[in-house]
Nucleic acid binder design. Structure first.
Length: 744
DNA sequence: GAGCACTGC
């Protein structure tokens, strides 16, 4: 049927106005505050109810009630007869908790552990906890888990849950995974970067080790592809236990998904049907609630106001990853009687967290994706249509506790004809420098021949190898150098590892260690929306080191340390406490590795120029040159690049001739994020394959020292002094550096 | 004068 009536929408409102209409409507009219106040009381009630359920059924009875129990013996038979099996286990089948236990009961743990990988840390932890309860043992004994910063296993452990990244690291130490008798790769259909690398590696391990069982779980739509990849291995189906979800498509394409979502949510709310609503939006910007206070109330989408006023209360709850965790927790609290929850989420609610009681899903059909462009070395963060697999996953969120409905704000024809069946796997749209380094260290000779399920673009691979060569991780033949081998030890991007390694000789390793840790954690600064926005910016300026964002970060950490790592101090200075704690954890982990690798910790004290030079030593390939007031051009591509407004260098009178950047991201413009001023001389000294010093028209030729893989890129590496591009102004300096890249 | 989906070692 017709879900929405577009014809009445004539006014041309801006995006922002639409957002504000969304929340002014929902948020204010439905007395959200009243609703929220009642939450606390009802939490207690809910807890009592769930413990009541636990009493009714024993753990064993609960295990036997799962769909997977009915096919237990068949499943074990097929695993016994095959080294690799694809298991299609739908939601609610019990595969994640039961498969490991079945293998244990069938004797596989007598000669090794049963390992089970998860794409997320919380999942690894919570599933391990559940299984240890079912096996009546203490967590960390028979059943344990391992995630970054936390190894909760012991010599007794026979069932080990872990993130896929952990298993990948373990395969570095022990390439045949001799400690395992079976490995289950759970949620493999999510195709994380680590999953895809493990696919290729584990397939080889199984071919070497006939006693190892590999079980890969998949969604229905990928199962044939998975089975084919591993050599036409059998597929085993386990039915799920979910409720039916009615899918309703929009009859006409929606111009504005925010407005359409508001209308749909209101329609559901006024229809009298019971149940909570979950709305999927592409980004934080669409969800952020606070900004709506500053906006004006707009007439509501042709709804009659008296209808709205008489409607029951509705609690609108935002959820996205950057939201502070105390606010995130609200979505799990039960709403009081008579209050309906309306959760507005990014795709964090698609897989990462599950809310019970959702009966209605409203799906805008978009998500944000980061896509890497290897040619210019830039990430683009953009809104894309979701895939059919995403859409089905989202719809499924309405059928967890009862029959549900899913309203798709796009047409059936768009779903069928315009959406991809599955999202492009991460390995095809990300910077591969890390993957390349890892595979090289595992002794993979020719990376272009590595057995990937979906091989990444060749250009991307070559570019990553080239970047590693620049950093001195690969030699002229493309083989790993001692520096490269050392870099693998660190759980960091290659350039950051390199920075840490060179910092020791430069006498500033303790300082660089802090900077690297700060860069490994997203969003240190918390920037509340109105009204304290200026306040937070002012506080931030207090940390500012005019010539460097990196040093600004160092400054923040040192001050936090001086204030005894206080969370109150963080709150006062608009800094994410959670992020800072993670910085500290990362620092401790990296420090351990440095000690292990005999890299001394030394501080340069107050001589911060040394630190800038050290940063330059690892990032000289990401440099920009001043061109006009406050304008920079990328030295590799000649592309204009902008200082990000949050940078310490932004809008200040100080405009250095050369800067290096940590990251280049295309959003509304090409922005350099996290920059540091450097000397031109340093660039020539530390990046001789890129830059040469030009003395009165004479140039120094760079010899061909590139590995064979990079023949296509050799031209890019040469410094060709081009007199045409050298002009007066800021070039009238003692030294001139010009970089020329052969355009395609 | 912008604003960042989500993971992981």
């Amino acid at each position: 049927g017709i879900l929405f009536n577009n014809e009445d929408e004539k006014e041309d409102t801006s995006f922002e106005k639409n957002i504000c209409r969304f929340f002014m409507g929902l948020f204010l009219i439905f007395h959200v505050f009243r609703a929220e106040q009642k939450f606390a009381d009802h939490m207690k009630e809910k807890n009592e109810a769930s413990s009541e359920f636990a009493k009714k059924k024993t753990l064993l009875e609960q295990r036997q009630y799962l769909p997977i129990f009915a096919v237990r013996q068949q499943l074990l038979n097929i695993i016994r007869d095959n080294n690799i099996v694809i298991v299609v286990g739908e939601t609610g089948s019990g595969k994640t908790t039961q498969l490991t236990q079945y293998l244990h009961e069938d004797g596989y743990t007598s000669y090794g552990m049963v390992g089970c990988t998860q794409p997320r840390r919380v999942a690894a932890m919570s599933v391990a906890k559940r299984v240890s309860e079912e096996m009546n043992s203490n967590l960390g004994e028979e059943v344990g888990y391992a995630i970054r910063f936390e190894d909760c296993t012991s010599e007794k452990t026979v069932i080990k849950y872990m993130t896929d990244g952990i298993l990948l690291r373990e395969s570095l130490r022990e390439s045949d995974l001799d400690h395992y008798s079976a490995v289950i790769m759970d949620e493999a259909h999510e195709r994380s970067l680590n999953t895809d690398v493990l696919f290729g590696l584990l397939q080889e391990v199984v071919s070497r080790r006939s006693d190892l069982k590999l079980i890969v779980t998949s969604a229905t739509m990928d199962s044939d592809k998975f089975a084919g990849f591993f050599g036409n291995v059998p597929i085993f189906n386990i039915p799920g236990r979910t409720f039916p979800v009615d899918i309703l498509f929009s009859k006409v394409p929606q111009e504005d998904y925010v407005e359409a979502a508001v209308k749909q949510a209101l329609q559901i709310h006024l229809s009298g049907m019971m149940g909570d609503i979950l709305i999927f939006m592409p980004g934080q910007e669409d969800i952020e609630v606070r900004r709506f206070f500053t906006s004006l109330l707009q007439p509501q989408c042709n709804m009659r106001l008296e209808d709205l006023e008489n409607a029951p209360p509705l609690a609108v709850l935002p959820i996205y990853s950057q939201l502070p965790s105390d606010l995130q927790a609200k979505i799990f609290q039960k709403a009081p009687d008579g209050v309906r929850k309306c959760i507005v989420a990014t795709n964090i609610a698609e897989t990462s967290l599950t809310v019970d009681g959702i009966m209605f899903v409203v799906d805008a059909g978009y998500c944000k994706l980061k896509v890497f462009n290897p040619r210019i070395g830039m990430d683009a963060l953009q809104v894309y249509p979701i895939s059919q697999a995403n859409a089905n996953q989202r719809a499924g969120r309405a059928g967890r506790t009862g029959p549900g409905q899913c309203y798709r704000l796009y047409t059936q024809s768009a779903f069928k004809n315009e959406m991809l069946t599955t999202t492009i796997p991460e390995i095809q749209r990300t910077n591969l420098a890390n993957v390349v380094l890892l595979l090289k260290s595992l002794g993979v000779q020719d990376l272009l021949l590595f057995h990937f399920m979906d091989p990444p673009p060749e250009d991307n691979m070559l570019n990553s190898m080239y970047q590693l060569w620049i950093l001195g991780a690969l030699d002229n033949t493309g083989a790993l150098t001692p520096t490269g081998r050392l870099m693998v030890e660190f759980p960091l991007d290659p350039a950051l590892s390199k920075m840490l390694i060179v910092s020791c000789d430069m006498g500033c390793s303790a300082d660089i260690l802090i900077i690297v840790s700060m860069l490994s954690v997203p969003s240190i600064f918390y920037r509340p929306k109105v009204p304290s926005v200026h306040c937070s910016d002012q506080v931030r300026e207090k940390f500012s080191v005019p010539e460097s964002d990196h040093l600004t970060y160092l400054n923040v950490y040192l001050q936090w340390k001086n204030n005894n790592y206080s969370s109150i101090w963080c709150n006062d200075h608009f800094i994410h406490t959670k992020a800072m704690r993670k910085v500290r954890e990362v620092r401790a982990q990296l420090k351990d590795i440095m000690v292990q690798q005999k890299i001394n910790l030394v501080s340069c004290g107050s001589d911060w120029d040394v630190i800038r030079k050290c940063i330059c030593a690892a990032y000289f390939h990401q440099a920009a040159k001043l061109k006009g007031i406050g304008e920079y051009v990328n030295v590799r591509t000649g592309m204009p690049c902008h200082l990000h407004p949050t940078s310490a260098l932004f809008g200040m009178g100080y405009t250095p001739d050369y800067i290096i950047y940590h990251e280049l991201v295309m959003t509304t413009k090409e922005y350099m994020q996290c920059v540091t001023a450097v000397d031109g001389e340093w660039l020539a000294e530390l990046g001789p394959m890129f830059y040469s010093i030009k003395h009165a028209g004479k140039s120094r030729q760079v010899s061909n020292i590139l590995p064979e893989y990079h023949t296509q890129h050799i031209q890019c590496a040469f410094v060709t002094l081009d007199h045409k591009t050298s002009h007066k102004g800021q070039f009238l300096k003692k030294l001139r550096f010009i970089y020329h890249m052969k355009a395609e």
